[in-house]
Structures are given as structure tokens and as C-alpha cells.
Computed example of a mutant assay.
Amino acid sequence: MSSHSSAIAYRLEAARSVVRDAGQLAMAMRPAPGGPAGTQKSAQDWLTETDGAVEAFIADRMKTLFPEDGFQGEEGGVARDGQLRWVVDPIDGTSNYARGRNRWCVSLGLLDGDKPVAGVIEAPALGEVYTAHVGHGAFLNGKPIQVSPVKEPASAMIEMGWSNRVPREVFMEKMDAIMRLGAMPRSGGSGALALADVACGRLDGYIEIVINLWDVAAALPLLAEVGASVSPFLANGGLTGPATILAANPHIAEALSAAVSIPLK
């Protein structure tokens, strides 16, 4: 392993510890099941006290551990620049978290320039931790993962993320295209976990028309390591603003891409 690769591996191990502690903080602050706890930024777009607390916790820890690294958070924006840059979504799936549901995660990705190189996604309420280091594998709770072997769209399970930034007509058009393939549609409320589900074979594909870097930064190394087909999210503007993503197992990727008119290249 080169010295640079060793530096990434060391950072990933440190990030794993920091994210574990951040997940414990989020669990301690977790609302009880019921009506949403938090403030509504816009339709179905929630912010809780935990989002800010978890992001601040991770930001402080990473600054102490790696003061030379850049840092970008969903809530705080780009706090520091650096060749290596951490990108955090403190609570991905806030609408679920705010209602005491289980499908949410803490997501922390590492970019080397404009290349995702490592990531940690922890879903504390589910007892699951995904890790990946490009060139060194992708894992769920320490065990290697792989994409689904499903080849027929009529046997596929496809998730599509919803956003109030997408016109209803566009969402319905894409969802209709998925169903016309014969695939089973899903929508779970966490982009990071949906992408991780593609990486481990629980889903055959995931689509979101408008999604941000912090939602996908930790998942992109997972997808790369398992050979998933992924649209060029970063090249299409995802480094600096919202963009569209399609990720799928390679057996159905072309059919899904054609059906929903989202190019893979």
C-alpha cells in the first residue's frame, strides 16, 4: 500500500470512530415516535436540533485529527479547503429521524480533489455500518458486499428519491417509466442509504433528480468498489451544486437509464 493510500486508510479508520460517536449522539437526541420534531425548511424538508449538533461534533473532531484537511457540511457549507476534503451529511433521512423512524444515517465521505476515495455510512437505529476505501473493497458491518445479480427489470426493485425541487410531473413521469419496465418502485427517504442498498444488492437501482454532494459523497466509493453503474454525478455539476444521480447494478443499468432518460455517460 502506497503512503498516500495508507493515509486514506488511516483517515477512514479515524472517521469510522468519529461517525460511531456521532451516531450515538444522534441516538441520544432522537425524538420519540410520533409527529415530526423539528422545523420545516420547506415542504417535507425538515431540520432538527440534532442535524446541527452532529455536524458540529464531526467538524470539531475532524479539525482536531486532520487540521490540514478541508471540511464541508450540509448545514455549514465549506468550512475549510484542502486537497483532502471531508463531506458530511449529519442526518441523512431527517424526515424519518424527526418522526422517530429507523431509516436515517450519519454519512461522512472523503474526497481527494474531485475524486471520492473513502466513506462511512452508519445507520445506528438499524445497527448497520457501511465502509469503503477505493481500491480496497466495500463492506457492511465488516463483511464484503456486492451488487444484486438481478438481470430482468421485471424482477428488479428500484427506489426513487423525492424532492420538492422536482416538478410533480417530472417525478411522476420517471416513476411511471420505472413501473412500465415492470420494476417494483420504492421510496425510503434517505438517499445515502438507498445508494448503499444498491451497493449491497438490496436494491437494483436508485434515482434522484435533484440531490447534493453531501447525500452521496460517502456512497460513491461503495458503488465504485462493487462495480455498480453510476451516472456522472460529479461531472454533471454535483461538486458545486445539486445534480441528478442514477445508480444501478450493471445488469439492468442500461435498460433503466434508457427508460428514465438519465444517461450513464
Rank of each mutant, 00 (worst) to 15 (best):
A28W: 04
R20D: 12
A138E: 00
N141Y: 03
H136Q: 15
V120A: 06
T39H: 12
Y130K: 00
Y97G: 04
Q72L: 15
A218R: 00
S3H: 14
A258D: 14
K63I: 08
G70C: 11
N96E: 08
F233Q: 02
A15L: 08
I178F: 05
V230C: 11
Q40C: 14
K265W: 07
T64N: 10
A154V: 13
G34C: 14
I121S: 01
L264D: 07
N96L: 04
T50P: 02
L110I: 10
P232T: 11
D51C: 03
R16Q: 12
E159Y: 00
P116G: 06
R20Q: 13
E225H: 08
L111D: 02
L234V: 07
E49P: 03
L12E: 02
V18D: 12
A98W: 00
G127P: 06
A243H: 00
M29D: 13
E169H: 10
L220Q: 06
M179H: 09
A258H: 13
L12G: 06
N102C: 09
A243F: 00
S163K: 02
E254L: 13
V260K: 04
A228Y: 05
F139W: 04
R101G: 08
I245G: 02
I211L: 10
M160F: 07
D45K: 14
G191R: 01
D197P: 01
P153R: 09
M172V: 11
A9K: 13
V129A: 08
Y130A: 06
L203D: 03
R30A: 15
N96D: 04
I262P: 03
M157K: 15
F66V: 05
S148Q: 01
S6L: 14
S6N: 13
L110W: 01
D176Y: 12
N141E: 08
M179Q: 15
V216P: 00
S231N: 10
R20V: 02
V78H: 07
A247F: 03
N102S: 14
H136C: 10
V166L: 03
I145F: 06
G35C: 06
P124H: 05
S5R: 12
T240I: 10
G93P: 01
E74Q: 07
L222Y: 03
L239C: 02
L264V: 06
G113R: 04
H133M: 10
D51Q: 05
L65Y: 09
V150D: 02
V166P: 00
I145V: 14
D69I: 01
A253Y: 04
A56W: 05
L256S: 05
P263D: 08
E68N: 11
K151H: 09
W86Y: 11
F139L: 13
W214F: 12
G189M: 04
A59E: 13
H251Q: 15
G237T: 11
A156R: 04
Y10D: 15
V87H: 00
A53S: 14
G23W: 01
G137M: 02
D89E: 10
L126S: 04
A98Y: 00
